[in-house]
């Protein structure tokens, strides 16, 4: 009986260890996922158009480590981004923020689309007006018919 309890105790302890190991594992995995997600939104400052997640540049490596450190220290995603933004400016963000100097960037395509759309509508309308304008005389109509479908009428 005593042996049974001993085994049970050992089993319980082992289970416990397993569970806690799993807990720290999933916590670490979650943290890694966050580090990866944040890294993907930060631009590598030495390689133009890669995130620090994708870049192999030494500085990007160090920046990834910094992100890891800030996340481990309990910073939120935005706090980590702001930390680097404070030092490297908006440039370090992969997605430019919507602010006065990026208004043209964000709204430009929409404005172009609206302009092109307006132009298109205006043109189509004008064309319809021309098409329906009935200024052909009967003579012209007959000539057009003859040119298009041959002189069947005359031949018959």
């Amino acid at each position: 009986m005593r042996r049974f309890f001993l085994i049970l105790a050992i089993f319980a302890v082992a289970m416990n260890l397993c569970v806690s190991a799993q807990a720290t594992n999933s916590e670490a995995a979650e943290r890694d996922a966050r580090v990866a997600a944040i890294s993907k939104t930060l631009r590598c400052v030495v390689c133009q158009n890669q995130s620090i997640y994708d870049s192999n540049a030494p500085l990007a490596e160090d920046m990834r480590r910094l992100v890891e450190k800030r996340v481990a220290a309990g910073d939120s995603d935005d706090e980590v981004r702001d930390y680097l933004r404070e030092r490297y400016g908006d440039y370090v963000l992969m997605t430019p923020p919507l602010q006065s100097n990026t208004l043209l960037l964000w709204l430009g395509p929409l404005v172009l689309l609206l302009l092109a759309g307006t132009w298109f509508v205006v043109r189509v309308r004008r064309k319809t007006v021309i098409d329906t304008a009935d200024d052909l005389s009967d003579d012209d109509r007959a000539r057009a018919h003859a040119a298009l479908f041959g002189d069947k009428d005359d031949a018959s």
Partner: peptide
């Protein structure tokens, strides 16, 4: 060696 100060200073190269 690990860009600690470099990143603080916003060094890019």
């Amino acid at each position: 060696a690990d860009s600690e100060l470099a990143i603080e200073l916003g060094v890019t190269g």
